[in-house]
Design a protein around this nucleic acid. Structure first.
Lengths: 106, 106
DNA sequence: GCCACGGTTCGATTTTAGTTGAACCATTGG
DNA sequence: CCAATGGTTCAACTAAAATCGAACCGTGGC
């Protein structure tokens, strides 16, 4: 199951535009999402701009993305598998995720 | 010219995705932008969810939108004319504005 | 010219978000 | 079973954003 307690994810119907926009308005979080575009990734494998970021900070970034419904975070062995919730996002906000991910990386 | 000093607007090339997303991640600001979709509006005419909001607060909302490059704010008589910078946004982030404005109002 | 109107700006305060160490928890490897 | 790995959670702190009154500024009406 999960490492410590199962993490809660909002259902598709509960996604709100403003929460999604907010989650993606941080460069670090956006960079994470960009990495997930090509498929799920183990959390340990997703690289950050600050390589020696404390794990609690990294975990917090993931929490914001998860609570906004952008990312699914499930246990996988002793680590965590991160998945972009593209289908849910596309269903509720058509074209949004694509437009954001296609935008210049800046 | 302007009412008090000319307001500065970022040029198209200086727009950043994260600043735009942040500006639109607030429900009040997003509501303003939705009103501007059908054309420019005098600031006094754009309604807010809180009708008796202090003018300094309203002005601050506009500032965030302006500094992110979402809205142009120019003097017009003794008031202010607000314009959505759709062309600039579309040029730099194709599809983004449309996807956001087409999303459910929530 | 003067005053009311619509807005911006400043500064102080409150609110919200980010950061991080420490404690804790499952899982896997040995 | 034990220790290391990979992550979450909590609490305390710092940083950033929102709020709003007061002072101020152009413009237009009179």
């Amino acid at each position: 199951m999960a490492t410590p307690a199962n993490l809660s994810h909002p259902s598709r119907a509960d996604l709100t535009l403003t929460a999604v926009l907010f989650a993606l308005s941080d460069p670090e979080r956006l960079a994470i999402v960009r990495q997930l575009r090509s498929g799920p990734l183990d959390m340990a494998d997703c690289s950050l701009s600050i390589p020696d970021m404390p794990k609690s900070t990294k975990s917090h970034l993931m929490k914001v993305l998860r609570e906004a419904g952008v990312v699914r975070n499930e246990a996988n062995g002793r680590g965590r598998r991160l998945t972009l919730r593209s289908e849910d996002l596309d269903a509720r906000f058509p074209g949004l995720l694509g437009a954001i991910l296609d935008a210049p990386a800046s």
